[in-house]
């Protein structure tokens, strides 16, 4: 948390910062809002929160095709047969694992 606060100290006028991380890094919304300064007050720096959305099935297929061997089509087929498989492959980081299996 202290390093994140320290990062905020680098917010000189003209500087732009993007923070990325897991939402559960913070204890609660209050801590998140205070640490990231999510409330816009006057001319002070503030942080706008965005959430990365899960991949759609079309995007999963596109990512998987990057691994070759028609992996995209195979994953689409597997997802249609077993919807819970979708919960695994909607994370791009899991696709290399799936590819090696």
């Amino acid at each position: 948390m202290s390093t994140l606060t320290l990062c905020g100290e680098l917010l000189y006028p003209g500087t732009k910062v993007i923070y990325t991380g897991r939402p559960n890094f913070f204890i609660d919304e209050v801590e998140k809002n205070i640490t990231l300064r999510t409330i816009e007050i006057g001319a002070y720096a503030y942080t706008q929160l965005w959430e990365l959305t899960p991949l759609t099935i079309e995007e999963i297929r596109e990512v998987a095709d990057g691994f070759g061997d028609e992996l995209g089509a195979k994953i689409a087929e597997a997802t249609a047969r077993n919807p819970s498989f979708f919960d695994i492959v909607l994370r791009p980081s899991m696709l290399p694992v799936v590819e090696t299996i």
Partner: peptide, 25 residues
Amino acid sequence: EWLVDSSRRQLAITAEYGRGKSTAM
């Protein structure tokens, strides 16, 4: 849009593990 925004708006992008935050950056 954020890069050309002259305000002091910063961004935070959250997501669960493996969703591509680090890769996007």
